[in-house]
């Protein structure tokens, strides 16, 4: 049995979070992960308070276990969803794409455990100072918005810099990744792509098929040139077009911003393999079967436990 301070802090059985994937991580998936013993997370994505309230209601109808909400700080609705998590007494909030300090005080006063995603040591230290209970150090192996550092590099550096628990994210899909994360100093892990193919995940079947079919070199990073929207997704017609336009001589940040509009919805809801943007991590090649969220979690931790128990065999 693998236990860490994160289990006690959040009252969960396994120290594993399901990433707050926009258009994918809804109340149903979050509840399935929480029922499986992890921390399910609902993505507030680019939607308003009504959407989030609806998903929280769904999660609550399916589980009595703790769950979280991920707030994308760049969302135009960030202010209103920041209020909903307070009025709904959501136990855990994770944040992405920015600096959450503006909301920290009201969340902490409401008794919410705040765990921001960070992409650098400086960011981790800042949010620790503002009252974060833990941080998610995410490497660029992950799908979606990414920073520059790899998981192997960022996790131990963040662990050294802060005294709150660190959750490792990016490039983790199985027990090997979990065991390695613990060796790097993490007290937990966050996985996105592996949960994307969970049976309880309502994403379009074409999206799941893209991930299941993907191999080690199937993902690509776009949006690097203008720096504000760097994303990893599965190579397709959309990413090829995007890269071509992004590096065209007459490209501007404004023009490129328009290219991505609506592409996540096309992927997750319509399953449009040509024009959708299928965010997924580098470990897509390791994800090759659909299981329930509970099966995924149990398999991963059984494997991690066996590996960690055998770690002694390296020491002579």
């Amino acid at each position: 049995m693998i236990k860490s301070p994160i289990c006690d802090m959040l009252k969960i059985k396994y120290p594993i979070f399901q990433g707050g994937m926009a258009w994918i991580a809804d109340g149903k998936l979050a509840a399935a992960v929480s029922n499986g013993g992890g921390l399910g997370i609902i993505s507030a994505m680019n939607a308003g308070a009504d959407y989030l309230k609806g998903q929280i209601d769904i999660a609550r109808s399916l589980t009595d276990k703790p769950f979280g909400v991920n707030i994308m700080l760049m969302s135009p609705y960030a202010d209103e969803v920041a209020e909903i998590v307070v009025s709904e007494r959501v136990p855990v909030v994770t944040t992405g794409a920015g600096n959450p300090s503006k909301y920290m005080q009201s969340w902490l006063e409401a008794g919410i455990t705040v765990i921001p995603v960070v992409a650098s040591v400086a960011m981790a230290k800042r949010v620790e100072r503002s009252g974060a209970a833990a941080v998610i150090a995410e490497g660029e192996e992950s799908g979606g918005h990414i920073g520059e550092l790899t998981t192997m590099a960022i996790v131990p550096q963040v662990c050294d810099a802060v005294s709150i628990p660190v959750i490792a994210a990016g490039g983790i899909a199985d027990g090997r990744g979990v065991a390695a994360s613990f060796m790097l100093g993490a007290a937990g892990v966050q996985l996105g792509t592996r949960f994307l193919v969970a049976k309880e995940c309502s994403v379009h079947q074409n999206y799941k098929e893209m991930v299941l079919k993907a191999n080690d070199i199937s993902t690509v990073v776009t949006g690097k040139r203008f720096g504000w929207n760097t994303c990893r997704s599965i190579k397709n017609n959309f990413t090829r077009n995007f890269s071509k336009e992004e590096y065209a001589p007459d490209a501007t940040a404004e023009k490129i911003a328009l290219l991505g509009v609506g592409a996540l919805r096309l992927a997750a809801v319509e399953g449009d393999k040509q024009n959708g943007c299928f965010l997924a991590g580098q470990i897509s090649g390791l994800v090759n079967k659909e299981q329930t969220a509970a099966e995924i979690i149990k398999e991963i931790f059984d494997e991690a436990e066996a590996l960690l128990k055998g770690a002694n065999s390296w020491v002579k």
Partner: peptide, 11 residues
């Protein structure tokens, strides 16, 4: 100087 550098600078 990117946004991560700005965070460091501000600190």
């Amino acid at each position: 100087i990117d946004s991560l550098d700005v965070t460091e600078l501000v600190m």
